[in-house]
């Protein structure tokens, strides 16, 4: 008989778990993880050093697991508000499939393992950066900023922007201007991306008592902020050319993508106050995902083309 079956029934709140492995995978926020893997990979690929492919794969996996661990810690802490919002109510903790204690233990164990693996297999600069990223997302954003300030996702966005810096550091052992520029692009992308979502999901956030910008400062102020960030983001998109680690061809793609972002943000800015469908906000949310994916793919393609040019032309 397994130990768990010998637990006395009088224990308060005790129950046998019916959680499936898939529920624990859901705790890792796989969709966020895929974006983290992609941006960390780009950070790694942009570095001027060619890493051992196997160690690079381990590093990417460790960064992905670290990101997943912070997602599990977020779901442990936020189970009360997740249960209120339609978008998050079906997550494993609010539905009771996974207990908060299980989610916490899962998140802490994976955090420790991912940081140790990255530190030992790549270097401790990358390991420390990953630990900082997990801490920033789980403690600074989730436990502190999210429920206390409408600037929550502006400051908290730093956690989501760090993966390319970690990827770069895993290969080079340093943090440099190039990786800081990649950080800046995702950092400036985060507010308009989440505020577009917060506009058409403001009633959800209102019910949960989360002080998102549309609920605190109003829709008009949020639209203005989105537009300002869109201009800053479009400008930051061409910084890789200015810093000399991307070509003019990439710059042309970045300018077009940035112009698209500004245009979609303008549509949101001019959206009538009584617009219930909020199609422009939904369109901007969708475009923002596409924007980041294409921009980073363009950087990757640019680096690949440069490498091939060196190999065959030089």
């Amino acid at each position: 008989m397994a130990l768990v079956e010998q637990k006395h029934m009088d224990d308060a709140g005790y129950r046998l778990s019916e959680a499936q492995p898939g529920d624990f995978i859901a705790l890792l926020k796989p969709r966020v993880m895929s974006l983290v893997v992609f941006t960390a990979f780009v950070g790694m690929a942009m570095a001027p050093v060619t890493p051992n492919p196997f160690l690079a794969m381990i590093s990417i996996a460790a960064i992905a697991v670290g990101a997943g661990a912070s997602g599990a810690l977020n779901m442990w802490y936020d189970a009360d508000i997740d249960a209120i919002m339609g978008r998050t109510a079906k997550r494993p903790v609010p539905t009771g499939r996974v207990t908060p204690g299980e989610a916490l233990a899962f998140g802490l164990i994976l955090s420790a393992l991912s940081v140790a693996t990255l530190g030992l297999m790549a270097n401790w600069v990358a390991g420390a950066l990953l630990a900082f990223t997990i801490f920033f997302y789980a403690v600074v954003y989730t436990m502190w900023l999210k429920r206390s300030t409408p600037q929550n996702i502006v400051i908290g966005g730093a956690a989501g922007a760090l993966p390319p810096v970690v990827g770069w550091a895993a290969v080079t052992g340093t943090v440099s201007l190039e990786s800081v520029i990649l950080f800046l692009i995702i950092f400036l992308w985060t507010p308009p991306h989440f505020w577009a979502l917060a506009l058409f999901k403001s009633s959800d956030y209102e019910r949960a008592g989360i002080p998102m910008l549309p609920n605190v400062a109003g829709h008009a102020a949020t639209k203005k902020q989105i537009f300002i960030y869109a201009i800053l983001l479009a400008a930051s998109g061409v910084l890789p050319v200015w810093a000399g680690f991307a070509s003019l061809a990439y710059g042309a793609v970045a300018v077009m993508l940035g112009a698209g972002f500004v245009w979609y943000s303008w549509s949101v800015f001019t959206m009538p106050e009584d617009d219930q469908a909020m199609k422009p906000a939904k369109a901007l949310f969708g475009y923002s995902l596409l924007y980041l994916f294409i921009l980073f793919t363009a950087l990757l393609a640019d680096r690949l083309a440069a490498s091939l040019g060196l190999a065959f032309g030089g």
């Binding site: 079956e5 010998q6 637990k7 006395h8 029934m9 005790y14 046998l16 778990s17 019916e18």
Partner: peptide, 9 residues
């Protein structure tokens, strides 16, 4: 008294 796990558990 012990808990008897169900088939699903």
């Amino acid at each position: 008294e012990f808990i008897k796990p169900t088939e699903a558990q």
